[in-house]
Design a binder for these strands. Structure first.
Lengths: 157, 157
DNA sequence: GTTGAAAACGGAGCCTA
DNA sequence: TAGGCTCCGTTTTCAAC
């Protein structure tokens, strides 16, 4: 069905496609010394195996009215399965929450919020995050400047 | 030179390309009621204007030996420009640091680290993060499970 | 690999503000 | 008249055999 082990060619494909998701199979083949068809089936397999989740255009939120990025640490009231899953379901549904992780340590969830400005953040915090179920405590931290934001994992193997 | 205002067609293009970066111009045109050529020049303009930063394959780090994600809060010794820029330059150069933000509030930088496992994290912390210049304090938090990780900003205008 | 289909590219001409 | 569009021929890429 699918090949689990990854070889050097797959690594080359993954590294290249992470940097340019629109590179042609032919061009990939010429740098990796494989035929276009060989590249094609490998890319398909990488997608079916879930190594490539999707192809996406990476946009600049600053230029699209989502320039304020905040990270929010969340502590919930009780750590029952119902409460945790209820929180997670609601978090997934909110457009302003770009990322949500269940964390180890001093807090339970870490959220990445993207909004236009502090006015909107204030509204989101009160009207939306405030209504998330079972929350005991929020603490917000804001991004002043983005030093690095890399989507491409450098794969060496 | 370039068109700053974004219209409804651009919004449609951006929303679609964020979800599928490999959708064809022709297909985009048919849903947005424009010709293939019109879509093509708009996508070019969106790239030149920096609204689209790049196209990328989004991969699954768990399947690529980068399954442990940690967030690290960093407090630096002094907030001089030299110290801050020195830290940022070094952070940018480290492959394990996928994201680095200069933050407001109780700590100075937030790092997203992707490594294979706790053994590797321990080494990275001591050998690499420990050598970042001017650091006073680290605090690490780890992702137990990823509830949501969205790269597509929903653009409404 | 080869071949037919599909998509991208690039230019000419049209329409509108 | 400049910007944006459509139309269409050419080149490149895709996809199936």
């Amino acid at each position: 069905m699918k090949k689990t082990p990854i070889d050097k060619t797959d690594i080359g494909i993954l590294n290249a496609l992470q940097l340019n998701g629109r590179i042609s199979n032919r061009q990939l083949g010429s740098t990796l010394h494989k035929s276009e068809s060989a590249i094609k089936v490998r890319v398909q397999h990488l997608q079916e195996a879930g190594l490539i989740k999707r192809f996406a255009a990476i946009v600049e939120p600053k230029l699209l009215g989502r320039g304020l990025i905040g990270y929010v640490q969340v502590i919930v009231e009780r750590h029952t399965e119902q409460d945790l899953t209820a929180f997670m379901e609601k978090a997934k549904a909110l457009d302003e929450i770009m990322e949500c992780y269940h964390m180890t340590g001093a807090f339970d969830f870490l959220l990445r919020i993207a909004v236009a400005d502090m006015d909107e953040y204030s509204k989101v915090l009160m009207k939306k995050l405030g209504n998330l179920p079972g929350v005991r405590h929020f603490e917000s931290f804001f991004v002043m400047s983005e030093v690095k934001n890399e989507t491409a994992y450098s794969i060496g193997e």
